[in-house]
Amino acid sequence: MSETTGTFVVTHAESDSAVVRDVETAQVHTLASNPGLEVHDVLEATVAPDPPLEVTWQLVDIEDRRAIELVDSDLEPTQHAKELAADAEVGDLIQEERAGTGEIHIFCVPSDDVDAAAADVLEDDETIARAARLEAVRVEVRRAADEGVLSVRYLPD
């Protein structure tokens, strides 16, 4: 095994160890120590096998560390998001790049499932990993229950 450099999400953190997952390859690395990491931290870092047994990993270098803010917004999706969803079927996902950086994901769900769908997005570790890949620092979930529209906005700083 050798050093690995990439973008990692902290999936578990205890006082004496942590687990990070590479957002591109999904490779999981258990760290032999925890240098103050918290769950959902995003790291641009290098990890290497921890000697002598090399069954755990150590952080060799942290180039950048940021937190992803998850926001359950009381705002409705934008008019544009609703228009995109108007022609979609229940179960469809529409992805659109934002002007500049980031992305908006629009889900069409049954009206009575919008709140549950929003909770699923906010609790899903993949939401954080996707935000890390998109270089977002804020994920904002908006919903229009009466229309069955859920929008997930991956926003830059």
Rank of each mutant, 00 (worst) to 15 (best):
E140G: 05
A116H: 10
A116L: 12
V114M: 08
D41P: 00
L53N: 11
G100E: 07
A132I: 01
A118I: 07
D61H: 13
I68C: 05
E83M: 12
I128R: 03
D115Y: 10
H40A: 07
T127P: 05
V55H: 14
L122A: 08
R130M: 06
Q95M: 07
V121T: 08
A86C: 03
A129P: 02
A119R: 13
R138M: 09
G91M: 04
T101F: 01
H80S: 14
V60P: 11
E83Y: 13
S111M: 11
E69G: 08
I106V: 15
R133K: 06
L134Y: 11
I62E: 14
V139N: 07
H40S: 10
R65A: 06
A119I: 01
T78E: 11
C108L: 12
A136I: 04
D87M: 10
T46I: 09
L93S: 08
A118P: 00
V60T: 15
V47R: 02
E126F: 08
A81R: 08
V141F: 09
D120K: 11
V71H: 08
P52M: 12
E69T: 14
V137D: 13
L84T: 06
A45Q: 07
A119C: 02
E97I: 01
A67G: 09
A119K: 12
I94P: 01
A86I: 03
E140S: 12
D92M: 08
G91Q: 08
A136N: 00
E135F: 02
P52R: 15
E96P: 01
E44S: 13
A131M: 03
D50A: 15
H40E: 05
T56S: 14
L59N: 03
R138E: 15
A67S: 14
E63D: 15
I68R: 10
D112S: 12
A48L: 03
E54F: 07
I128W: 02
R66K: 11
E135S: 15
V55P: 00
D61M: 09
T127D: 04
V60F: 03
A81P: 10
D64Y: 09
D87N: 06
S111Y: 04
A48I: 01
T56E: 14
G91F: 04
E54G: 13
L84D: 03
I68E: 05
A119T: 13
G100V: 09
D41C: 07
P51I: 10
E96H: 12
I128E: 00
D74E: 14
A118F: 12
V139I: 08
A131T: 04
E123I: 03
A132Q: 02
E140T: 12
P51K: 15
L53D: 14
D72H: 03
D115M: 06
D72V: 03
D74C: 02
A45T: 02
R65E: 12
H105G: 11
T56M: 11
L93C: 09
L53I: 04
R138G: 04
V109N: 00
A67H: 11
I106K: 05
P110M: 12
A136V: 00
F107N: 04
V71P: 06
R133A: 04
D72F: 01
H40L: 05
P49L: 07
P51W: 13
